[in-house]
Amino acid sequence: MPKTIFSFIAITLLLLATIVYSMTTGSISVGFVELMKGLLGSPSEQVEVVRDLRLPRIIVALLTGAALAVSGVLLQAVMRNPLADAGVIGISSGAGLVSLLLVTIFPALFFWMPLFSFVGGAIACLLVYSLSWRSGLSPLRLILVGVAINATFTGLGQSFNYRGSYAVTSVNQAISSIFTMKTWDDVHMLALYGGVGLLLSMLLGSWCNTLVLQDRTAQNLGLSVMKVRLLVSVVAVLLASVATAIGGLIVFVGLLVPHIARLLIGSDHKVLLPFSAIGGAWLILTADTLGRTLLAPTEIPASIVMTVIGGPFLIFLLRRSERVHGH
């Protein structure tokens, strides 16, 4: 318990420090005292720029990271597989493809893009689950099927870039992983849909703890396994899809954060879910801040930073899984 409390305090302080650093650093540098005065009622021109451009970007990065990390925890509970991640197994790319298609055809429905993304993510999740199932879910088979579906949806989405349509180009930028032009409208949309998903996920801790057990054991404990698995999957897909629609296509967050969280605080989902939300928020904000400041004024998308970090980590987890299963 002391280790858990210490871990929560440490990640929260780290998150707050990163938020302050991200707000005060960039092409326009603002001191912390000046920033606080400006936000609390004595605005200067520099603080106005930070509030209108940098602050929405920071909030979108925080909510995107939290949603992707919690989605990863839920998917891993449903599939009983520590390698499940919305970005790796194609849920995010499916969400991006369907939202791109529908908003291109019906631009007036842009506000409903998170719901279109949810439909795409649900289709991808169903495909991965059904094609991977063979008297159980093999971790390696799940990854292979997910990577194949991810590649298919990503290729279909990228093919739209060559149509030369302005609508397609603008929508593609909207689901890209560069947070540069995010506005308060994006914040409101992500807070609405993502906030609902995050609140629901925090109520699912006990069910997730039971889902980790074998189906027969869970049923003996009075749990309706298929109904619970479906409900948890819906919340996981909602979170991943909304994060993709607003924050862009970012992989490995739902893989990295839950794994490290389990090492720090254990596997109790009642604690794991909120901790992963904080950890995911910090990770994406850090990736975006690094991408924004390392080679300024050039920006590196957060997705590229995460791919560089997450690729080797996935290889490590696959090798570890093989050793555990004796292959």
Results as ranks from 00 to 15, higher is better:
161 N>E: 13
325 H>T: 12
32 F>Y: 09
319 R>F: 01
18 T>E: 06
95 A>D: 09
138 S>N: 09
91 I>A: 01
264 L>Q: 07
256 L>N: 06
188 H>A: 14
305 V>S: 05
95 A>W: 08
183 T>N: 04
12 T>E: 01
21 Y>K: 00
88 V>D: 10
32 F>V: 15
135 S>R: 08
45 E>I: 08
231 L>R: 03
5 I>Y: 00
8 F>L: 13
200 L>M: 13
266 G>V: 07
93 S>C: 02
322 E>Q: 11
247 G>E: 07
67 A>K: 00
94 G>D: 03
307 T>I: 14
35 L>P: 05
112 W>N: 01
164 G>H: 01
205 G>H: 03
155 G>E: 00
253 V>C: 08
63 L>D: 11
6 F>V: 13
9 I>V: 14
7 S>F: 01
256 L>A: 13
285 L>V: 05
228 V>P: 01
99 S>C: 14
287 A>C: 10
14 L>C: 11
171 V>I: 15
278 I>S: 04
47 V>R: 02
129 Y>S: 15
72 G>Y: 11
259 H>E: 00
221 L>Q: 12
201 S>Q: 02
183 T>E: 06
148 A>V: 12
51 R>D: 07
79 M>Q: 10
116 F>C: 08
98 V>M: 12
217 T>D: 15
52 D>W: 00
46 Q>M: 09
4 T>S: 12
181 M>V: 14
248 G>N: 11
105 I>E: 03
202 M>E: 14
146 G>A: 10
30 V>T: 12
159 S>A: 15
203 L>V: 06
185 D>K: 06
33 V>W: 00
50 V>Q: 06
214 Q>Y: 07
281 A>Q: 01
261 A>G: 06
258 P>I: 08
161 N>I: 04
151 A>L: 11
53 L>G: 03
49 V>F: 10
208 C>S: 05
129 Y>N: 12
28 I>K: 03
274 P>V: 08
269 H>Y: 10
8 F>C: 05
291 G>E: 01
145 V>W: 05
154 T>K: 00
53 L>P: 01
262 R>A: 13
164 G>M: 07
320 R>C: 13
117 S>R: 06
65 G>S: 07
3 K>I: 06
276 S>V: 04
86 A>T: 10
79 M>G: 10
1 M>Q: 09
111 F>L: 14
1 M>L: 04
66 A>V: 11
238 L>H: 03
231 L>M: 15
87 G>A: 07
201 S>V: 13
204 L>S: 11
309 I>E: 08
131 L>N: 04
108 A>T: 13
114 P>M: 08
214 Q>V: 10
110 F>W: 07
142 L>Y: 06
